[in-house]
Amino acid sequence: MNNELIKIIDLYTSTTENKEILSGLNLTVNKGEVHVIMGPNGAGKSTLMNAIMGHPRYEVTAGRIEFEGEDITELKTDERARKGIFLSFQTPEEVPGITVEGMLKGARFAATGEPVRSIRFRKEMKEKLDILQFDESYATRYLNVGFSGGEKKKNEVFQMMMLNPKLAILDEIDSGLDVDAIRSVANGINNYMDEDKSLLIITHSNKLLDYVKPDFVHILMDGRIVKTGDASVAKEIIDNGFMEYKEVVDL
């Protein structure tokens, strides 16, 4: 058994509008690794995340996605989630009438098939919320309803910590966060992370990367990965932009 957690092989997607967004993307993330994906707007970053999570609007037209050696390309979103894939949303949905705790209990029950013990669950929530410096009261509020942008991001990380997936995909988790919030979110991510888990981070800045050290940085352009390097690539992009890679793609 190798160490591969997720392997994306020559993936092509189209949306229902029939506009191809990923065109032959390859990416392998091993257990314990932190990968960062950067790319200009419209390069296909969000499409990649949605394709991994199985959003019905993003259809895989060729290629496949393997998770722990199993082809998951045809699996439904909830099945992928229960196998251990988590996606934190750039703009999380608001669900009136359902509390954060209620949703998480539903998710825990879906994962384990066993009744969730309330007292123990609350204790577990409190531990995670403390790490995020997130007030306990948020767990009893309706999911993302009336949350500020920063609170929604924290709530995403909180859900990740509670669901404890094998692979967490963080889509611009650092955007719109102030310095203190970044630190709390990073604490949460580092608390979650261990040698058996992996992170796939989409970001436009190095704010989070000051706290969460990437093993690999990929440049995604026109639906493909055009360069892979170490943390220095991220720094270079943030300083100089994507122009240099634009030329690579154009060739």
Binding site: D78, F89, M103, A107
Partner: peptide
């Protein structure tokens, strides 16, 4: 999709939204 990405089935996700 958001609720399903948390491992909740499509049916239960819909039921949750309606319950809410």
């Amino acid at each position: 999709f958001y609720l399903m990405s948390r491992g909740i089935s499509e049916e239960e996700a819909k039921a949750m939204i309606v319950r809410g």
